Amino acid sequence: MEKTLYELVPYEVIEKAINGDVEAIQHVIQHYSRYMNSLSQKNLSDTDGNTYVAIDEEIKKCLEIKLVISLSKFKIA
């Protein structure tokens, strides 16, 4: 088996998440949380013109919902 740079979600957790186990779904969401944070970043600026990066929570929630919907549609052969 090939080694990866990051830890994968265990097969058993994916299987439970597909079947609707709440703890397993939360585990999958937590696993992808950092990635969703990076996709949800926005560059904002204040009144003085200083720019900073912030996470748009609405975008992050949309990504979490998409992930859960995708889990419910996922088929294991």
Results as ranks from 00 to 15, higher is better:
residue 43 N to S: 06
residue 37 N to W: 09
residue 11 Y to C: 13
residue 15 E to G: 04
residue 27 H to Q: 13
residue 40 S to C: 03
residue 14 I to F: 13
residue 49 G to I: 05
residue 3 K to R: 12
residue 39 L to W: 10
residue 8 L to M: 08
residue 48 D to I: 01
residue 49 G to D: 09
residue 74 F to M: 13
residue 7 E to K: 15
residue 26 Q to D: 12
residue 54 A to E: 14
residue 76 I to C: 02
residue 44 L to F: 04
residue 1 M to S: 12
residue 33 S to V: 06
residue 22 V to I: 08
residue 56 D to E: 04
residue 69 I to S: 11
residue 8 L to K: 15
residue 11 Y to D: 14
residue 65 I to H: 08
residue 20 G to M: 15
residue 52 Y to G: 03
residue 4 T to V: 09
residue 67 L to M: 14
residue 41 Q to H: 01
residue 57 E to K: 07
residue 23 E to F: 01
residue 48 D to A: 13
residue 5 L to V: 06
residue 72 S to I: 05
residue 9 V to R: 08
residue 27 H to L: 03
residue 20 G to V: 14
residue 56 D to A: 00
residue 48 D to W: 05
residue 6 Y to R: 06
residue 1 M to Y: 06
residue 41 Q to R: 11
residue 60 K to H: 03
residue 49 G to A: 06
residue 47 T to R: 08
residue 55 I to Q: 01
residue 50 N to S: 04
residue 15 E to M: 11
residue 66 K to Q: 08
residue 16 K to P: 05
residue 65 I to M: 07
residue 14 I to N: 09
residue 33 S to N: 15
residue 4 T to P: 05
residue 68 V to I: 14
residue 55 I to K: 01
residue 42 K to M: 13
residue 63 L to T: 08
residue 32 Y to G: 02
residue 30 Q to Y: 14
residue 33 S to W: 11
residue 44 L to P: 00
residue 22 V to E: 13
residue 37 N to R: 06
residue 36 M to D: 08
residue 53 V to E: 12
residue 67 L to N: 01
residue 13 V to Q: 11
residue 69 I to V: 15
residue 49 G to V: 11
residue 62 C to H: 10
residue 29 I to P: 04
residue 53 V to M: 09
residue 8 L to D: 15
residue 58 E to W: 02
residue 40 S to G: 07
residue 44 L to H: 06
residue 15 E to R: 15
residue 32 Y to A: 11
residue 65 I to K: 15
residue 39 L to K: 14
residue 75 K to I: 08
residue 12 E to R: 10
residue 9 V to N: 07
residue 72 S to N: 09
residue 50 N to T: 03
residue 44 L to W: 05
residue 17 A to L: 14
residue 14 I to C: 08
residue 9 V to H: 01
residue 28 V to K: 07
residue 6 Y to C: 08
